[in-house]
Simulated assay, not measured.
Amino acid sequence: MLLYPPSRRAPIRLTSDRDEYRVGDMAAVYEHARRAAESAGARVLLGVRFDGASAGVARLAGSEPVRARCRR
C-alpha cells in the first residue's frame, strides 16, 4: 500500500507478510492531535500552506512568519 501526503510527493510504502485491512476514523485522529498540540501550548492553524522554514522561522502562505521548533 502507498500512502501519499497532500503534496503527492514522497509516498510511504506499507508492506505486510499477510493481507490486512484497516480503517481509521481520521477526523477523530486529527481532532485528538489538534487538542494535544493546543494543550502543549501550540497554536494550530488549519487550512494554511507551509511555504518553508529557516533559522527557526516558518513561512506560512497568507500569514506572518511564525517562530517554530521541532522536538524529536
Rank of each mutant, 00 (worst) to 15 (best):
R69N: 11
A61I: 02
P5A: 01
R22H: 10
P11Q: 08
R49K: 11
S7Y: 04
V66S: 13
P65T: 06
R69S: 13
C70D: 04
E20T: 14
V66R: 15
P11S: 09
R34M: 12
M26F: 10
R67I: 01
F50I: 04
Y30R: 12
D19A: 10
Y4E: 08
A28H: 07
P65G: 05
E64C: 01
G24K: 07
E31S: 01
A27P: 00
R22Q: 10
D51V: 04
L3H: 03
P5K: 02
R49C: 04
S39D: 14
R18W: 03
L2P: 08
R69F: 11
G41S: 04
S16Y: 12
C70P: 00
A68L: 05
R9Q: 07
V48D: 03
F50K: 03
S54M: 05
A55Y: 14
M1A: 15
A58N: 08
R67P: 13
V44I: 05
E38Y: 00
I12V: 15
G24L: 10
C70V: 15
S39T: 13
A10C: 06
R35M: 13
L2S: 09
L14P: 00
A40V: 03
R72Q: 05
F50V: 06
D19H: 06
E64V: 07
T15C: 06
F50C: 07
R59P: 03
E38S: 01
G41M: 02
R22I: 09
L60F: 06
R34L: 10
R34S: 10
L45S: 05
F50E: 04
E31F: 00
L3D: 05
Y4K: 10
I12A: 14
R72M: 08
A10F: 09
E38Q: 08
C70Q: 13
E31Y: 01
A42C: 15
A10Y: 08
A58L: 09
T15H: 04
P5F: 00
R71H: 06
A68Y: 09
R71G: 09
S63G: 01
V57N: 03
A33K: 06
P6V: 07
A61D: 14
L2V: 09
Y30H: 12
M26A: 08
A53E: 08
V48T: 14
R13L: 06
G62D: 02
V48Q: 05
V66T: 15
A61P: 01
S7D: 11
M26P: 04
E20P: 09
R69M: 11
A61Y: 03
